[in-house]
Design a protein around this nucleic acid. Structure first.
Ligand SMILES: NC(=O)c1ccc[n+]([C@@H]2O[C@H](COP(=O)([O-])OP(=O)(O)OC[C@H]3O[C@@H](n4cnc5c(N)ncnc54)[C@H](O)[C@@H]3O)[C@@H](O)[C@H]2O)c1
Ligand SMILES: NC(=O)c1ccc[n+]([C@@H]2O[C@H](COP(=O)([O-])OP(=O)(O)OC[C@H]3O[C@@H](n4cnc5c(N)ncnc54)[C@H](O)[C@@H]3O)[C@@H](O)[C@H]2O)c1
Lengths: 227, 227
DNA sequence: TCAATTTTGTGACCCCTTTCACAAATCCTA
DNA sequence: TAGGATTTGTGAAAGGGGTCACAAAATTGA
């Protein structure tokens, strides 16, 4: 591609994004402790990765460091947040307020982060409210699932979190798609498909456990496995 | 395998293991529907991967298919379970019976799988029991954390699930290590380190969300992202 | 001012994983 | 029994990501 020469779209490895999130967490800790500067070597150590890896990851997005010095903690943190889209406030809805859904509603870490749960849906709000009333801080109500399209549009929901039984996962996903909710975080152990332009992230507990179990049964010995 | 020659340890990609878990889920579904045979192409489609990938993954462990036919669902499922160690019963302990810990205790999917929660620990059992009593089916009690070493040995716990606040994660991990619990599933957003021979798997919700948010902000358009 | 020191940014290399493409094996039908 | 159809298993090629090593840039100290 000469002519337009230096456009160079570098495709960013998925793994890089995961690590940026990890760096972000470490940097927040450092910032809290009042540390001003950090080297790639130190950050790497804190995150259990290679120092060159840290530099490579950052280099995808610009030159944030100063040779002979390192990276300014606050500055780097801001940049990473910008990259990850963490400077935007992401609005989430939880669908299915059972055991897991209720736990998510009361997950305090979200408060400190740029993720906010702005709506909670269930197929049986009256029953559910009795069980989880003490947890209903921010989304002060549980809304019936049949109002999801309307409410999702009103509240500009970015991400739908599926915490219903697996049998309902696809139909809930369909509703989210119709409502124009582009991001889906799926906790139900079921295959969910969406049209182009939408993104699904699965979190399958048993897959994670299968992974752990496999590592334990093959006597690999040492393995801190970050993914 | 003539002589000892052809031992060939093939190192299995981590990604392969994750996919096997996915295949397993699909196969269970098919078995439930009474389907006898499946081709790599169909299984691949169900799991949103490449057909050659399916065959390669399986080929690491043996020849399970029949050319011109495909794979016998039941047979393949059994083999995959054997590979993943899913024929073993894994005993788990949950540490920190708060919102998330309580949700895990009542996670019904574990019942169908080969993972069993055999103990629940907290630093304040009396308070906790009041809140979660209805969820205490199998581990009928919440035990004080200071008895973890003794109980872990007695009940032969394989995997410890950390669901305490992040500040406590490392010290809980230390206890688990001392008790000889080799596998750790860590939900607390904190760096946890363990000695050689132990395995830690982190599940950081915000990292997963950061990932999703990144995909949403970079207008990649289509992306079903399975990890 | 200059040399020694520190630490980044990055080209080059290497390894691992995925995809492609096809021979080999099996089934089906006439 | 033979020929056509199907689908596996796998070598080879392609692609991506991680590590190494070093030049370039900044700092420090004399
Ligand atoms: N409990 C856990 O720790 C855990 C862990 C990992 C994954 N999961 C998965 O998360 C999901 C929820 O688990 P849970 O334990 O909270 O189950 P649950 O049965 O306690 O909760 C499910 C909730 O979804 C609601 N629901 C059902 N159909 C619905 C629909 N069509 N629309 C909206 N709401 C609907 C139900 O009323 C119920 O309140 C399941 O798919 C489960 O496999 C749970
Ligand atoms: N709630 C969620 O949906 C969610 C989601 C993802 C991750 N997490 C993480 O999981 C962890 C638990 O979250 P939560 O919302 O259940 O918090 P929580 O405060 O409701 O529960 C924490 C529990 O841990 C107990 N505890 C504290 N110190 C302990 C110790 N040293 N030993 C044993 N038990 C101890 C507390 O008594 C409490 O019962 C946190 O690290 C949180 O960041 C929570």
């Amino acid at each position: 591609m000469k002519g337009v020469t230096k456009l160079k779209y570098k495709k960013i490895p998925e793994a890089t994004i995961r690590r940026l999130s990890r760096y972000s967490r470490s940097l927040e800790e450092m910032e809290g402790k009042g540390e001003k500067v950090v080297s790639s070597a130190l950050l790497a150590k804190k995150c259990a990765v290679n120092a060159a890896q840290v530099r490579k990851d950052l280099a995808y997005f610009g030159e944030f460091g100063i040779r002979g010095v390192g990276y300014y903690v606050e500055d780097l943190l801001n940049n990473i947040k910008k990259i990850l889209g963490s400077n935007k406030e992401w609005k989430m809805a939880v669908i299915g307020i059972g055991n897991l859904g209720a736990a998510l509603l009361s997950y305090k870490d979200f408060l400190k982060q740029n993720y906010t749960i702005v709506a909670a849906f269930d197929i049986d709000p009256p029953r559910v409210i009795g069980r989880v009333s003490e947890k209903l801080g921010k989304p002060a109500e549980v809304i019936h699932i049949n109002r999801i399209k309307e409410v999702a549009r009103e509240r500009k929901i970015d991400i739908g979190v599926i915490a219903t039984p697996p049998s309902e996962a696809q139909s809930v996903a369909n509703l989210l798609v119709e409502a124009g909710v582009r991001g889906i975080l799926n906790f139900a152990p079921a295959q969910v498909t969406v049209p182009a332009g939408f993104v699904v992230k699965d979190v399958f507990f048993t897959t994670i456990l299968d992974n752990l179990a496999y590592l334990l049964s093959t006597e690999t010995g040492y393995s801190i496995d970050r993914k």
